[in-house]
Simulated assay, not measured.
Amino acid sequence: MEWLLAPATPAAAGALRTELTAFLVRHAQDGDTVDDAALIVSELVGNAVEHAGGPVWVSVDWSAERPLLVVHDLGPTFALDRIALPSVDSTRGRGLWLVSQLGLDLRVVAKRDAGKRVQAMLPVTRRMEPSFDPPRRQVNPLPGVDEAGPDGFGREAFLRALVVELARTAENANGPASAEQMVAQVGATVGGQMEEEYRRARGLVDRLTAEQASDCYLRLKAAIGGDFYVISVDDDRIVLGNRRCPFGDTVRQAPSLCRMTSSVFGGIAARAGEDAVVLLDERIAVGDPECRVTVLLGAAARANPGGHHYHRQL
């Protein structure tokens, strides 16, 4: 996730701190305190706003166990070896000293032309969520491959309402995990059928590359009314954004439906390789303005203890 503060004002820094703290609260392990992490965000962003005299760029990458905060600005750099505990009567310098004590792997790197990059690993861990990785049922689910139009499968309002109501009923009766497990099974089976349709449309036989997998995601989501777009693709991860949920605003009443995206994406990625992890970093279903989904592939997936894990099933 990335933000640009321009103009970089104290009000903008405060709003970003609130947004980032809410993000950490949603994903942090139960029992973790996010107060220390929020203090680090506040100090590093606040220092950049106060001293840079220009735009400030902020990013958070939580594809590993702990989130990495990076703050770029065009202001003067400083040396970490000069950070010491201020005297009791000092009014400045205490915040950066606290960051050096609370943050992990604090670094300051000068840019080639002007400015610097300051980064720190935030002292929170990602909440462990159960992974539902059911095998695809070996029956031909509806819709069948031959029902697809030139742009993939279509969407029917009745079926959308049916799925939402089934998820809500399962969640109310047996809890969120039960609903998520049910939705994951649907995603595993229907996702496999959607992948077959994509392969037939593209004439593909071999395993999908990361680029082909991301293209498959866009095709199947666009066909059912989503507005997904690629943020980045490389050999070890695919990062996608989404401006519109296929289930519409009703998804806020059944957040367990996000497991559909996780299961579909994770199953396709695992079949393309050996292992995959899906991280649902932002979700329209829980009030975020957009969705942001990271799919980790191969070694990157095996190295990540969090997220939803998927394995290649023969």
Score class of each variant (00 low, 15 high):
D32Q: 04
V124M: 00
L220W: 07
C245W: 00
M121G: 14
R199G: 04
A213W: 00
R199N: 05
V34M: 00
P86H: 10
R137L: 12
L166H: 15
G53A: 06
A301V: 07
C258Q: 03
E196W: 05
A84E: 15
V88R: 11
L162W: 09
A210R: 11
A269K: 00
D81M: 09
G75E: 07
R126Q: 12
P134Q: 07
V45D: 01
F228V: 09
P150G: 15
R66A: 07
V108C: 01
G149R: 12
G31E: 10
G287P: 02
R137Y: 05
R219I: 04
A179P: 14
F158C: 10
R243H: 05
A6V: 14
A177V: 09
Q119W: 15
L80P: 06
L24K: 06
L74T: 15
D36V: 15
W62M: 02
M194H: 07
G152N: 06
V145A: 11
P246C: 09
D236H: 13
S263W: 00
A184R: 10
L69E: 02
A15P: 04
N304Y: 04
A269S: 08
W3V: 00
R259T: 08
S131H: 08
D61H: 11
A177L: 12
R237C: 13
R207H: 08
Q185M: 10
G144D: 07
P67N: 03
D89K: 13
S42V: 04
V70N: 00
T209Q: 07
V118H: 05
V233L: 02
I238S: 06
G54H: 10
R237F: 03
L16M: 10
V251R: 02
V56M: 02
G154Q: 12
E195I: 03
Q119L: 12
R243E: 03
S42E: 11
V108E: 00
L240W: 01
C291R: 01
A270V: 11
